[in-house]
């Protein structure tokens, strides 16, 4: 039993330990959902400067796009809010197959 499933509570602990070990870290948080979004508001994803990540904001649908954006957030230090949903072009590309819509806040841990 060594497999660890990351839960939202240990994502914040992971963010802290990554930052304290000198890695550059961004934290993504689901701040709003509409329809059948796969992960609830408050769900976290932690990302480092090399694109390593733990946790989830959508159960796999848009993590790739969030990680990409997080690398930019780490680079310029500016927080941003991303929106994914069935109606926009990004969603068409990265896909929320469940048909929901989510907003994700991505911030750097300083």
């Amino acid at each position: 039993m060594t497999v660890m499933i990351s839960t939202d509570s240990d994502i914040l602990a992971t963010a802290e330990s990554w930052a304290k070990s000198g890695r550059s870290v961004a934290l993504a948080t689901v701040i709003e959902t509409w329809g059948s979004a796969p992960r609830p508001v408050g769900s976290h994803l932690v990302i480092d400067g090399e694109g390593n990540f733990q946790g989830s904001v959508s159960g796999g649908c848009v993590e790739g796009a969030v990680v990409e954006e997080a690398v930019d957030v780490i680079a310029d230090g500016k927080a941003r809010t991303l929106e994914f949903g069935v109606a926009d072009e990004t969603a068409w590309k990265v896909g929320l197959s469940c048909g929901g819509r989510i907003r994700v806040y991505v911030e750097k841990v300083n």
Partner: peptide, 13 residues
Amino acid sequence: MELPVLAALNTER
């Protein structure tokens, strides 16, 4: 997020 804020959040939890 400032690291001390994150650390305080984790300590409280």
